[in-house]
Design a protein around this nucleic acid. Structure first.
Lengths: 223, 223
DNA sequence: CCTTGTTAAATTATCGATAATCGATAATAT
DNA sequence: ATATTATCGATTATCGATAATTTAACAAGG
């Protein structure tokens, strides 16, 4: 009993469940710094906002708890996680370790189709006209670079770490004009991947992550 | 308004919630291979077993989903995750990368108190008389070795990866007598940490993880 | 004989309401 | 006046029941 007989091999992407839709909206609001750190998120408010009962809201919040975007206080609910320089620095350090390894493995398998996907994401970065779209495109670009590595567990961890770091970027963009996401750095990263020099690509990626982290940390400490 | 005036500085460890207790039991049953891979876990059964309604059961299952110990099929429930050699190998490879880094950082800060905690866990490994206790002690030992690194995010990720790998160990122990958890290897690991040679410790740790992984993979493929 | 459509059973997902918990405040006692 | 206890309001956590979904069995038709 195949999942999708009309388009064999493609499969049906299940329409996002209610909890997933709610989590997606809250996640965007958090990483774009639309909601301030430490803000309490009350189940009833969210339930009314989406016109559902509290049960699916709780599931969405549990998702965000697992992603460390909110913190849970038993019997007191959840709050948007605080922004701590130590968290950003450790997460970024891990990203350097894991993403350089991922890109090395990906480069071995990189196909023309993968390049097309990455180019498309790059275009989306250039065309994005709001913070949410920009971040989504940024995610998509990095994922496109790493997916060919064929390391799904690592990729999953990296995605979580990147979301955690993106929060800080979103905060910086909201409160200052520094460190705008540079189109050109990503263009160069993709060019390096296509050129095939693994060492050069890895060290450029390390710089890419470190530089944006350092800018964010100084912005964070300046308040 | 201090949390605990009778024992200042100690604080009250909040008694585990119902979902946490349920998740803990299911987690143990899964990693000790008491439940076979692909077994469907029905909400009503668990609810009746613990004498609660389905709501807290769903929360416990969501926890296990986040830990990748069960897989969720929308509108069809959860099943114990399958055992795949590829998953074990990638998770173990990640563990080598992250745990060698952790132990290096931990050795810089290692105190006598940390050593006592590790020795205690080592004793528990020796005295454990069932698979569940053995695994819990094993976890505690490795955590004791890594905690002084002061890298909570990395430690959290490593704990998740170790739980994923432990499933395979539990499976092997259930179906063969090979690869019993050796007390002596952990004794030597702790000795190396205390001796202070970071390179030697890291390479021993790499071998410790790789060897047990290889044994498990061959056991897994032999059926 | 195979396919297709229909129904029934089982299970998940959601709902509305209740119980349990917490923080703050008021009341009482020392 | 201070410290302890009791009550209140708000919110989470849990419950029991219903709605939605899937699966399997079976019947009708090609």
């Amino acid at each position: 009993m195949p999942v999708n007989t009309a388009f064999p091999g493609i499969g049906i992407q299940p329409s996002p469940s209610i909890p997933e839709r709610i989590a997606a909206v809250l996640r965007r609001d958090i990483v774009t710094a639309e909601i301030d750190p430490d803000t309490a998120i009350k189940q009833i408010h969210i339930a009314q906002r989406f016109g559902v009962s509290q049960a699916p809201v709780r599931e969405a919040l549990n998702q965000l708890i697992a992603e460390h975007l909110v913190v849970h206080y038993p019997n007191k609910g959840v709050r948007v996680a605080p922004l701590l320089a130590a968290e950003l620095q450790e997460a970024a350090s891990l990203r350097v370790t894991l993403e350089t390894e991922l890109v090395r493995k990906a480069m071995v398998n990189f196909t023309d189709a993968d390049a097309v996907v990455a180019e498309t994401a790059l275009d989306r970065i250039g065309k994005a006209n709001n913070v949410g779209d920009l971040m989504a495109a940024h995610e998509a670009f990095h994922d496109a670079i790493y997916e060919p590595a064929g390391a799904p567990i690592t990729l999953d961890i990296v995605q979580g770490l990147r979301a955690r770091c993106s929060r800080y970027l979103g905060f910086m963009w909201k409160h200052s004009d520094k460190g705008r996401l540079s189109f050109s750095e990503h263009r160069k990263l993709l060019d390096l991947v296509l050129a095939g020099d693994a060492d050069k690509t890895a060290s450029f990626l390390r710089e890419h992550i470190s530089a944006s982290t350092d800018a964010t940390v100084t912005c964070l400490e300046g308040r």
